[in-house]
Design a binder for these strands. Structure first.
Ligand SMILES: [Mn+2]
Ligand SMILES: [Mn+2]
Ligand SMILES: [Zn+2]
Ligand SMILES: [Zn+2]
Lengths: 142, 142
DNA sequence: CAACAGTTTAGAATAATTATAATTTATAAT
DNA sequence: ATTATAAATTATAATTATTCTAAACTGTTG
């Protein structure tokens, strides 16, 4: 249970009370070796599958948004109908598999750094991110 | 009225019946010199402002999707809560103004072409697009 | 152990989008 | 031109993701 202890610390540090529910959500989100890209629904499913727990939908939304606000999660917009979140909070690029609707991080070395030569006057650049849409190689056009 | 005639042709060519409503929507969308980035709501507003007409919301959705399917419009996902559409259907990059929620096309010369060095095996790349998020230069962090 | 603010929860409300089913319209055939 | 038919439009209902609400509960602090 040393793992959970670290989440309690982490939550406390950022001014979030380490409640039962938040700790469980942290476990599901951050106790993994690879980046996790998910929708709220994915997360709810994982919580019930991996932890055999039920956390109310409102709490899952609240907690994910709280973690995002504190910089532990990042929101990604791919699909206009639902939000994706990402445990990799750095500015980075993605592959989006249009067949499986999966988001995959681009490694640093997979995309050459993007140069923005002209910016809009009076504005500062917050992020520059690339989305590579991929699909199966079959010739399945309409 | 030569303009409308061209829309009638265009619609007919792609197998869409040139109805009163579709022609009006085409006018609003394509009778402009600059690229138009819009939400369904923006479009409905323009229709009532510019043409003093009321087209039912269902028809606006249907028509926009029909035009998109035929390649006359492109859907852009920025914000997870609503869809943006774009009269520029080419693969291209955008600035997104996080203050005003406006989408602006990047000119060819504003972003250096992006090189994807490694792709996912078994998949083909459909598009590579960059999103540059900008905001006002004021120091308004939380 | 209080006390109190912060959190969780079920369920209602909202907002964008899609589905339905009746009416209307565009086109093609007569 | 009239008619037949399929396609489109419309008002409205349904759906889906998300947010709000307000009551019950829990974590923290003294
Ligand atoms: Mn959000
Ligand atoms: Mn859509
Ligand atoms: Zn990622
Ligand atoms: Zn554009």
């Amino acid at each position: 249970m040393t793992k959970n202890f670290s989440f309690i610390e982490k939550l406390r540090e950022t001014g979030l009370r380490p409640t039962k529910q938040r700790i469980k959500i942290c476990e599901v989100l951050f106790n993994r070796e690879k980046t996790f890209h998910f929708t709220i629904n994915d997360l709810v499913k994982k919580i019930s599958e991996e932890l055999n727990e039920k956390i109310s939908l409102a709490t899952v939304y609240n907690t994910v948004h709280a973690l995002q606000k504190k910089g532990y999660l990042k929101e990604i917009s791919i699909n206009s109908n639902k939000s994706y979140f990402d445990t990799n909070t750095s500015v980075h690029h993605h592959f989006y598999d249009e067949d499986t609707h999966q988001l995959i991080d681009c490694n640093e070395n997979e995309i050459e750094s993007v140069k923005v030569k002209n910016n809009i006057t009076g504005k500062k650049i917050n992020s520059v991110e690339v989305l590579v849409r991929v699909a199966s190689d079959n010739q399945n056009q309409n």
